Simulated assay, not measured.
Amino acid sequence: MNKKSGLGEFLRMRRSQLQPADVGLRDFGERRRVSGLRRDELAQLAGVGLSYYTRLEQGLSLNASPEVLDALARALDLDEVERAHLHDLARASRRTDTRRRSAPERAGDTTQQLLAAFGDAPAIVLGRRSDVLAWNRTGHALFAGHLDPDIPNQPDQRPNTARLVFLDAHTRDLYREDWPKKARDVVGKLRLAAGQHPDDPRLAALIGELTMKSPEFASMWSEHRVRKWDLATYRMHHPLVGSMRLNLQTLNVPQEDGQRIVVVTAEAGTGSAAALSLLAQAGGTPSGVRSVRQAARTEATA
């Protein structure tokens, strides 16, 4: 992640994604030589000088004030999450290079207690790079039953949700109907993390790996879209219990930078809730699912 070019790349990409009509500018039908807004148009909308704005895009000016950044955010029609990301990129561009290898993240004791308190509801703890730091039994069964349940305890082997979504066949099939939506949510969250933690070498290595190994990731990453979702609904197809429509809610972990717990629920009384309950009772194993189904059939005919 090049900190000095990050701000300019974001400005250029978002400028190219806006048309004059999107921001109230009249288009007189002239043949435009650039896609989206021109630099002079954006500078005019933001109320800044063209030469100054040009230096910002080129990474030659690193001292944009919060007021200028807010003016650019308004001109680009950024939402609150995107505006905060713009400020993160500007702060990153002013930092000296302090990149260092940080200690592995871990889920603290109180976080582990909270994870256990969710009972049979699938829940996982994610770090700032989207590494899986911990999961409960049903969380493992839902998201990664094909992996060793103890693998989050091995820092160098931990699964990463971004890597799973783009490079793991099991996970791609899990989200088969909503994979593009899930993939864009993952990329948007990584974009936010990259702006907030520009000196994190592990995060930079992850982004580089995904860019090299997944053309789909590289394409989405180049769009510079950021997303911060607290609630998302996905259609998921589990190999043991079939299709479900599930709600994923994110809870930030207090006093842990970037850590969050993702908890999964389904609407009560639906087939999705029944399937999720079956997965919890069965322990996420084929034999367990067969046993629970057999017991249900026996009870129904008794």
Rank of each mutant, 00 (worst) to 15 (best):
E80W: 02
Q58W: 10
A121C: 15
G139V: 00
F10C: 00
V68T: 14
D88H: 15
A90T: 08
R158L: 05
H238Y: 01
P254A: 12
S277N: 13
D77S: 14
R95P: 01
L78N: 00
T110D: 06
M236Q: 12
W179C: 05
R245N: 13
H87T: 12
R128Q: 13
Y175D: 00
L167W: 07
R14Q: 14
A43W: 09
D77T: 12
P286Q: 01
L89G: 08
V48F: 05
D27E: 10
R202M: 12
P254E: 13
F28Y: 15
D22E: 07
P159F: 01
E57W: 00
L251M: 12
R137F: 09
R245P: 02
R293S: 08
G49S: 08
A194D: 06
R260Y: 10
S130D: 11
S35A: 13
T270R: 04
T111C: 05
G242N: 08
R225Q: 15
L76T: 07
K182Q: 09
A92N: 01
D156P: 04
L276N: 00
N63Y: 09
L210R: 04
L240R: 06
L133E: 00
G188T: 05
L210S: 10
K213R: 15
G208F: 08
E216R: 08
P149T: 03
A169S: 12
R202N: 11
G6A: 15
R26E: 13
D109K: 15
E256T: 11
R129M: 05
L174H: 00
W179K: 00
E67G: 08
A266C: 04
Q294I: 08
F166A: 05
V253I: 10
W221V: 03
Y175H: 03
Q249G: 11
W221G: 04
V34W: 09
R290K: 14
L50S: 09
V23D: 03
F10N: 02
R83Y: 01
T96P: 07
H197R: 08
A204F: 13
A121P: 06
D131S: 06
R15Q: 02
W135K: 01
Q112S: 11
R290I: 01
A117V: 08
R12Q: 10
L76P: 02
A71K: 14
K189F: 15
P198C: 12
G139D: 00
D148H: 13
A300T: 04
E223V: 07
Y52P: 02
A71R: 15
R137Q: 14
L45H: 03
L133S: 01
P215L: 08
K181A: 14
T110S: 12
E209P: 05
G288V: 11
M220L: 15
G145F: 03
Q19G: 11
L18Y: 09
H238S: 01
R26A: 14
A218F: 11
V292I: 14
S65G: 07
L192N: 09
G145H: 04
R32N: 10
W221I: 04
A134D: 14
T54G: 02
N136C: 03
R33T: 05
A302K: 14
R83C: 02
R99Q: 13
R94A: 13
V186G: 02
R163Q: 13
R184C: 11
L279G: 01
L62A: 09
